[in-house]
């Protein structure tokens, strides 16, 4: 019994690690799924959509993602972002 209880508890605590972001995550995924099936697969991939949903969700993840293994992947986007930023500044 003890094992069972412990198992449940650990599952619950881990699943709540990014749960403060669950509304933002749902908003982004809903937007992404619609874009993917209504535009991307029809060849309309000229522009990325759901940008504001993504920015909000990502900001929340950056704050709540405790696992270092995972936050590394968020940070991996860094160079790409700074490149975009540099492009924006030079315009």
């Amino acid at each position: 019994m003890g094992i069972l209880r412990k198992e449940k508890k650990s599952a619950a605590s881990s699943s709540s690690s990014t749960s403060p972001c669950s509304n933002l995550r749902a908003a982004y995924h809903t937007c992404f799924n619609r874009w993917y099936s209504e535009k991307f697969v029809k060849g309309q991939w000229d522009k990325q959509e759901c940008v504001s949903e993504w920015q909000k969700y990502k900001a929340c993840l950056a704050e709540h993602l405790e696992d270092k293994h995972l936050s590394r992947f968020l940070e991996a986007e860094g160079p790409m972002n700074s490149a975009n930023l540099a492009g924006g500044v030079s315009k």
């Binding site: 881990s14 699943s15 690690s17 990014t18 749960s19 972001c21 995550r25 982004y28 995924h29 992404f32 991939w45 000229d46 522009k47 990325q48 993504w54 969700y57 993840l61 993602l65 995972l70 992947f73 968020l74 991996a76 986007e77 790409m80």
Partner: peptide
């Protein structure tokens, strides 16, 4: 749990 960490579209 499933979280999107990163995405990139090459237009």
């Amino acid at each position: 749990e499933v979280d999107t960490l990163n995405h990139k579209l090459d237009p």
